[in-house]
Design a protein around this nucleic acid. Sequence first.
DNA 1: AAATTTCTTAAGATTATCTTAAGGCGGCAT
DNA 2: ATGCCGCCTTAAGATAATCTTAAGAAATTT
Lengths: 232, 232
Amino acid sequence: MAAGILVVDDEQSIADLIEVYLKNENYDVYKSYNGLDALKHVETQNIDLAILDVMLPDIDGFSICQKIREKHNFPVIMLTAKDEEIDKITGLTLGADDYVTKPFQPLELVARVKAQLRRYTRYNSSEISREEKLITIAGLVLNKDTHECTLNEKPLSLTPTEFSILWVLASNRGRVVSSEELFREVWGDKYYTNSNNTVMVHIRHLREKMNDNAEHPKYIKTVWGVGYKIEK
Amino acid sequence: MAAGILVVDDEQSIADLIEVYLKNENYDVYKSYNGLDALKHVETQNIDLAILDVMLPDIDGFSICQKIREKHNFPVIMLTAKDEEIDKITGLTLGADDYVTKPFQPLELVARVKAQLRRYTRYNSSEISREEKLITIAGLVLNKDTHECTLNEKPLSLTPTEFSILWVLASNRGRVVSSEELFREVWGDKYYTNSNNTVMVHIRHLREKMNDNAEHPKYIKTVWGVGYKIEK
DNA sequence: AAATTTCTTAAGATTATCTTAAGGCGGCAT
DNA sequence: ATGCCGCCTTAAGATAATCTTAAGAAATTT
């Protein structure tokens, strides 16, 4: 899976430009023109690196960087205008891993991105491909690392089994997953016995917590005789 | 099964040229000269990659790309004329995985197609051969993943057995399938008893849902004394 | 060890689906 | 033409899948 990069700059033309160059290198780009939107991306997308402009209309880049650092450890590259000298150093102390002054050569930025990612991925996963750790569907967000789940920003407290079931459904969204397949995925093949409705009961609990009724479900749909699915 | 590639360009000569090169590499090519037709292909064929021209008479390539992204996750390669400004390249924003500027070397395009497919299939199925998951016949579309069925864009709600029977007929299209064979395929050999008209009743229900009358059927034809078939 | 949370089982209720069987209709052959 | 046999149609009873509850078992936390 390609690395996800968050790009935040209130000057749209600059954000767009960076995006083009990054996409060309096959990165997944998440773009924001303001800080609030950026933070939402941080919480809901698989981000591996952030490029933050310091000057933003709402929250400044340093504060965003701090917020990121509270929960994540991916690298952050700051963009600063040349005359913002003094703050630069401050920014670095607040956890940024690199900084680039505007105006900059896009290719130089790309090179720095690559360098940071090399460093980062070395520590995290020896493999090149990353597993998906975050899934977002409509208002539903699942975080596999923390086993946290939110629905329209409100946290749902799911039990481990509930989370696993929902995770399997979510990562197969669009496809019908049979009760048996769900069981094997969550409990493992060897525990499977055919007369056992435990999956169904967990589904019921999930629907309850998600305020989903079985007849007109917004999330977990039952496909009669086949299984359950979450619409794509 | 060979990978399916959608080629969309309003300049027929270009689409045709691409087609020749792709066919030569043994891909299944689905060609459109406009956006609407392309979207129809997306919903009804087994597509693994799309090549989209940006400038189209009806819907532009970016919008098509967005629409694709709502439901599918196969790679998209955009074709842009060299003089189409930079902000158009921003279209990459909307989810394209690669872009090629016209005029291009056909072999370069083919190389990029291969690269994207390599990347894509690595994430999706470790196996090289894909199962057929989508069958399209005239206005009829069957999706085995979601167990969904649409007839001229309108969804038909089929029961599991109905879906299975229709699937067997559809995947044997052009051939007559006997009532007995149908039964064995759907229920399994061991359940077969010769005096039982249940297949017939299901066929009847199918025809009802498909608005097909037995005397002049558009889809499920009965071949007297032999069985049923869907015309090729 | 007690308390709490979570999981599993089982049984009854509900609903969707399947099968059976019987009567009707129409091709096909004698 | 007429009778047979195979297909069509229908509806009701049988079956099977799912939903819902609740209670006891297991696991986890305090």
